[in-house]
């Protein structure tokens, strides 16, 4: 195997002065799907925001290498143009900017001169159809008044159009009913291929019934406490995160009532 697509070593991250990630290491190869699972507050979203370069998240130690290149000094937009994509857990609304205009502008930024404006409409229409999204979607304002399911489809629509090399899917299953979950998962599975690496961040195992991971990591209190194959997800489903949280729980119990 050559250079991993994504290689994180000993990553520590501060958010508003508080350390949330306390030394994370993981490595994603091209074509792999890694699931990162953990309870609320374990630092899952911190990792996704850090990978995307959110200015509020401060890397104090460690390295993030993307295709062998250190990302930490790169701004968010440069990371995106380089092929990193984050599907947001809570994508924000941008009034007055249509979905079509937004995606077109993003594609121009991502592909530069290789962007084919003439093909754009056709391509967008096809991508929307395969995600079961109505055509009128293109003229709606970005995430404005979208249902939970529409927001997640919109994220995957962008992923399909922007063709990233590394996709970080942050709780893409949250807020989806079973039908929407299936459509969105199918959308993601269609994009799987030898050149794409996926980091799937989720609280629940159910998404992994639809998108089969190669590796599963368990994140608790800012540290990866265990990694394994897909069977690890099933174990978590059965036993929950409690066995990994004992230390934390005990600490809590010593607090006087």
């Amino acid at each position: 195997m050559g250079t991993p697509l994504l290689e994180i070593t000993g990553l520590h991250v501060l958010v508003e002065g508080k350390e949330i990630l306390k030394g994370i290491s993981l490595s994603v190869e091209k074509g792999q799907v890694h699931a990162l699972m953990g309870p609320n507050g374990s630092g899952k979203s911190t990792l996704s925001n850090t990978l995307m370069g959110h200015p509020k998240y401060q890397v104090t130690q460690g390295k993030i290498l993307f295709q062998g290149e250190d990302l930490t000094a790169l701004k968010t937009d440069a990371r995106a143009r380089g092929g990193i994509f984050l599907a947001f857990q809570y994508p924000t609304a941008i009034q007055g900017v249509s979905v079509a205009n937004f995606i077109r502008t993003a594609m121009k930024a991502r592909f530069g001169e290789k962007f084919q404006p003439k093909e754009f409409r056709k391509e967008l229409k096809a991508a929307m159809a395969s995600l079961g999204v109505d055509e009128s979607f293109a003229t709606r304002y970005v995430n404005d008044g979208f249902s939970g399911g529409e927001k997640k489809r919109h994220e995957i629509l962008q992923m399909a159009m922007l063709k990233p090399l590394l996709a970080i899917l942050d709780e893409t299953d949250s807020g989806l009913d079973i039908d929407a979950l299936r459509t969105v998962s199918e959308g993601i599975n269609r994009l799987r291929g030898p050149s794409l690496g996926i980091l799937l961040i989720t609280h629940y195992q159910r998404l992994l019934n639809y998108i089969e991971p190669d590796v599963v990591h368990v994140l608790v209190d800012g540290r990866i406490v265990r990694s394994g194959g897909k069977e690890l997800a099933l174990e978590l489903e059965a036993k929950g995160y409690a066995p990994y949280e004992t230390a934390k729980t005990e600490q809590k119990e010593t607090v006087p009532q």
């Binding site: 968010t76 990371r79 995106a80 941008i94 502008t105």
Partner: peptide, 8 residues
């Protein structure tokens, strides 16, 4: 951040 995360 959202727009910049798309390369703008």
């Amino acid at each position: 951040f959202y727009l910049m995360s798309r390369g703008l």
